Amino acid sequence: MIHIRDLLRLSGVLMSAALAGCSVLGSDSDFAPPPSRAATFRITAAGVPGLPPDTAFSKKAIEALEPGYAVSSVTMATEQNESVAALALFRDGLQVLQVLPGAGGRIGAVHGVSESLVGPNGERIGMTFREARMDRLSCREGQGNWLAMPICTARGAPNVTFVFAIPGYISAGDLPDDATLASATLQRIIWVPPVG
């Protein structure tokens, strides 16, 4: 038989455990929300697993290297106000990657657009600027189609960038104040082939 004092002791233990896992909003902790989906790819300076930089820019080549993904032709808008024919990788009907053409018939930039992706330092689509532990000194304001969107270079991966969005923010010609920037949300992770 369970006694009342045992139930009270158990509820106290559970309450202490729950409070230990809490963080204070606005603190400088390294809090990051748990990922809502299992990671499918980790995008690093080396690229995207399964898609080496010398991969041919073709539906057939990419499908052979990434089994389980459906590859379709899409048109996407770039920062430079251009429309580019790209190849998109889908899994379970959701778009995960956009692959742009590069030099010599090979793949170029790869855009990660799914919350199931992980950046070089654990960054996830949907994280805030603060949760991703970004430094404003590594960022610039986007132009063209990405006007008012902070674009930041990944720590330790100079050929990986992050594109953040700030709903309702209107460009003042530079990055917003720190408080506004802290709430920007990561929208895409971009890898480009290393130069040289």
Rank of each mutant, 00 (worst) to 15 (best):
G102C: 12
G173Y: 11
A184H: 07
A184W: 06
V96R: 06
M76P: 00
V110G: 04
I170T: 14
P150L: 12
Y69H: 09
L137I: 05
A70D: 15
A109W: 04
F90K: 09
A109G: 09
V160D: 07
M149E: 14
E131G: 07
A172R: 14
R133G: 09
A85K: 13
P150H: 10
G144M: 03
G126R: 03
I107G: 04
A182E: 14
S72P: 00
S58E: 13
L137N: 13
E131H: 09
E123W: 07
L87K: 00
R124W: 05
W146E: 13
G173V: 06
A179I: 14
R130G: 11
Q80M: 12
L137K: 13
R91T: 10
V99M: 08
G168T: 11
E141T: 00
Y69V: 04
M134P: 02
V99E: 01
S183T: 15
A103D: 15
G119W: 08
G68K: 01
A86L: 03
A148D: 04
L65A: 14
R130K: 15
L89Q: 01
T161G: 07
A154P: 01
G104Y: 13
I62N: 00
I125F: 05
A182V: 08
E131C: 07
R136W: 05
V118E: 14
T78S: 15
E82G: 00
C152P: 01
I107R: 02
E66M: 11
A179D: 15
A61H: 03
T153W: 01
E82T: 03
C152A: 06
V113F: 02
H111Y: 11
V71F: 13
A88K: 00
E66Y: 01
P176W: 12
Q98F: 01
D92M: 09
L100W: 02
D178V: 12
G156S: 06
D92V: 02
E115Y: 07
G104K: 14
E79H: 08
V84L: 12
S183V: 12
L175M: 08
V74A: 13
V113E: 06
R91Q: 14
G68N: 07
Q143Y: 05
G105Q: 09
A184V: 05
H111F: 09
L137C: 02
V99C: 03
L175Y: 05
A132N: 02
Y169M: 09
G142F: 09
L175P: 06
N159W: 10
R155K: 11
V71W: 06
Y69T: 01
W146V: 00
Y169Q: 07
T75A: 15
P150C: 10
L89C: 01
E82D: 12
A132P: 02
I62D: 00
R140W: 03
C139R: 01
T78R: 07
A182I: 08
V84Y: 03
T180R: 15
H111V: 09
H111W: 11
R124G: 04
A148E: 08
L147G: 02
G126W: 08
L117C: 08
G119S: 06
Y169F: 15
G144L: 04
E141H: 01
Q80R: 13
Q95V: 01
Q95K: 12
S116I: 02
G142T: 08
D174C: 00
H111T: 01
A103F: 14
